[in-house]
């Protein structure tokens, strides 16, 4: 059945249904915006009414003003740049290593069984356990952040790739074999497309984890970036500035989530899990 017949067979004419849906979506968005405004108003009122001392929790308006000032400062954008650089490099290295190892381990039954216990043991080790090691090896340089980021994101991607490679349809694989496709061609045309949705899930999870670890490394170790600026602002008593930077990290987090979802949609446009979302 083609998408066209599906839509035409529905109860309401497609156009009207679309309009009704759009109206519902708009109402939902409006409520969402109301929620954000409500949250900001509550935040504004709590220090203004003296429930929490203004020195410790400045009102929302002050923090947002500080954030706007930050947007005009080169130092702020340098810090953002450092954080994003660590995030991107770390994620890239983790994904590259995990994809390579994942395909090698996943395509051999022996390797999969032999590595299983080691992977299950190494995976849950919290990457913050490596902080002292990172400090000893690299000090406050970006390599410290990278060590933590790569370790944490690597497992997220590797596990997903292993699941993905294991999910290959035996019939498809045997068909490809019968048609004389070599090992590399089968990996390219059978295994890779099957594993791709899993890989994208892993990358999306890893992107979020990588940001957390980038900020953590900067905060605790003091490698350059937003996290260090937060620690500095806190110890320097620039309280509105600190809250502004916390807001900025949240915004970066939201942007990364949106970006990853867009990339996933673009790359997996052909896959049924995305296609069905579009039709319904």
């Amino acid at each position: 059945m083609s998408p066209g017949t599906l839509a035409a067979g529905g109860a309401a004419p497609p156009k009207e249904r679309q309009r009704r849906k759009a109206g519902k979506g708009a109402a939902k968005q409006l409520l969402g915006i109301l929620g954000i405004i409500g949250f900001l108003a509550t935040w504004e009122l709590i220090p203004r009414l003296g429930l929490i001392d203004e020195r410790f929790l400045p009102p929302a308006s002050e923090v947002i003003a500080a954030l706007v000032v930050d947007f005009g400062l080169t130092a702020f954008w340098v810090a953002v740049g450092e954080t994003m650089k660590a995030w991107f490099l770390g994620l890239l290295m983790a994904v590259a290593a995990a994809v390579l190892l994942g395909f090698i381990i996943g395509s051999s039954d022996f390797l999969r069984k032999a590595t299983n216990s080691t992977i299950e043991f190494l995976r849950p080790i919290p990457s913050v356990a490596l902080i002292p090691l990172a400090v000893l090896l690299f000090g406050v340089k970006i390599e410290s952040s990278l060590l933590l980021i790569v370790y944490a994101s690597f497992w997220q991607v590797l596990i997903q790739v292993l699941y993905g490679v294991a999910d290959v349809d035996m019939v498809a694989n045997n068909t490809a074999k019968t048609y004389g496709l070599g090992r590399m061609a089968r990996i390219r045309y059978v295994v890779f497309p099957t594993a791709l949705p899993y890989l994208m899930t892993g990358v999306r999870l890893a992107a979020a984890v990588a940001l957390v670890l980038a900020i953590t490394a900067e905060l605790v170790i003091g490698s350059p970036g937003l996290g260090r600026e937060i620690a500095l602002a806190q110890s320097g008593g620039a309280i509105s500035g600190m809250y502004a930077l916390v807001l900025a990290t949240g915004l970066i987090g939201v942007l990364i989530n949106m970006l990853m979802r867009q990339i996933e949609k673009r790359i997996l446009g052909w896959h049924s899990s995305i296609r069905s979302e579009v039709i319904v």
Binding site: G32, G35, L219, V220, G253
Partner: peptide, 17 residues
């Protein structure tokens, strides 16, 4: 609908900060 965007924002803040 009211709370979802705000909650998504809170989730996106890296917890260590």
């Amino acid at each position: 609908a009211l709370l979802e965007p705000t909650l998504e924002f809170f989730r996106a803040i890296p917890p260590p900060v």
